[in-house]
Design a protein around this nucleic acid. Structure first.
Lengths: 240, 240
DNA sequence: AACACAGTTGCGGGTTCCCGCAACTGTGTT
DNA sequence: AACACAGTTGCGGGAACCCGCAACTGTGTT
């Protein structure tokens, strides 16, 4: 059995390699890629079906790489190993896991035992393992002000600079509906007029919504860059 | 001589500690803080004058912590040790270094020799050391499309959601001047109407400027959150 | 002194955004 | 069947934004 590690931090990669050798004696060969692009290449060349993947990497992030890998070999089992529990990352992953496969999400701050356990459970037993701390975050946001899928889509488009009209076209909504989604976004993201002693001050809701969303970890730079690529593809497709 | 390490990643902290012991035999005690806030506290309690600091940490980032430390003991020498070479971080640091002090900026991907050298040069010899790779980035952006200080200030305010009128008030400019700064921002950040086959599509320049700035690493979530705190302070001050 | 050039300011108007009001759908509850 | 409730759509108007045109300041160059 071959295992592919995709991780651009050398310290973390070393640690990971040791943990994998300890937890998975059935692994005969450990490959190591330094970014997402290289990870895709090696997975393809060696027909890898077991991957441990970091999320934030320069060049190409883990989610985009996972998408490509799963598109080529949907049965591939991927354990994500990352620092943060951003909603943006979670949403990205849950969206692309194929039915035939399993995946896991472990924080880098987890103990060695937790990591070892997740390695075996996900890569050998094909179970789905999500760190407890993540589930908590996922539920926190889900109960009190989660974004709907359509709200999320509008948020992304808006952040990329699309006008209401264009968003309507891309999302297949009417103009007014887009604006309604925006209204609820402003509400959920806590975009209010700034409070000042004499009276409230008018603000630009769009831009404030973006920084609020960044601050709440509903989006991040990676997800925006990835969405920008999708947008460009859509533009070329829909213009022809 | 006492040395304070501020670093929330345990692998990196271990490595750093080893490097410091090797490069700086004159150090008698190594303290370790896990985030910016704790770093400030320990620096205060032990009257630390030599610090190695990570930039991105949860809770409180390295730049804010450095600001507090330098406000209390300006002669403190700080070596920043970080993953990225974001323009946002660089701008933040250059802005707050006191004259009496020295600082350095080393990438985590640098070799052990480079790190050791920087440790001695900055913390003992009070020299200023900036990683070569950083200077390159700094120059790249400075030659072809750097943001002026006033442009940067307007960009931040705009990203926080201020209206043109409010930005004018905060920056002491006229309305039209703010708009001129915005125009040059749109230009420098590459905010253009989207190109599509038939004709160009109108976009929302403000929001697109933000994502472009994020993508070009002119700003990042940290710097926005930090700026948000400044804004709140300004609001309370100016309303009373 | 003459000139270039970058930055500041006012004016005016076309476009987009923000959102209240109101009507209509669909899903689920009692 | 009656009802609540969340989501969709149109209309219309006030506010904010985007920006061309034009004039004025200041700094530095020749």
């Amino acid at each position: 059995m071959k295992l592919l590690l995709v991780e651009d931090d050398k310290f973390h990669a070393d640690y990971l390699k040791k943990a994998a050798m300890e937890a998975l004696p059935e692994v005969t060969e450990i490959l190591h890629a330094l970014d997402g692009r290289e990870g895709e290449k090696q997975a393809r060349r060696h027909s890898i079906t077991a991957v441990v993947m970091d999320l934030q990497m320069k060049e190409r992030n883990g989610i985009d790489a996972a998408r490509t890998i799963w598109a080529e070999r949907p049965q591939t089992r991927i354990l994500f190993w990352s620092n943060y529990s951003d909603e943006a990352y979670l949403r990205g992953i849950a969206r692309i896991v194929p039915d035939e496969s399993s995946y896991g999400y472990v924080l880098k701050t987890a103990t060695r035992e937790r990591l070892n356990l997740a390695l075996r459970a996900v890569l050998l037993e094909a179970q789905i393992v999500v760190d407890q701390q993540i589930h908590k975050v996922q539920h926190q946001t889900r109960t009190h002000d989660t974004l709907t899928d359509s709200e999320y889509a509008v948020l992304i488009d808006m952040s990329l600079g699309l006008s209401d009209k264009l968003i309507a076209k891309r999302q297949g909504m009417s103009l007014r509906t887009v604006q309604n989604r925006l209204l609820s976004l402003y509400d959920k993201l806590g975009v209010d007029s700034l409070e000042s002693s004499p009276d409230d001050i008018a603000i630009n809701k769009r831009t404030r919504a973006i920084t609020r969303a960044l601050s709440l970890r509903a989006i991040n730079t990676e997800s925006l860059e990835s969405a920008e690529r999708d947008l460009q593809r859509w533009l070329h497709r829909s213009s022809s």
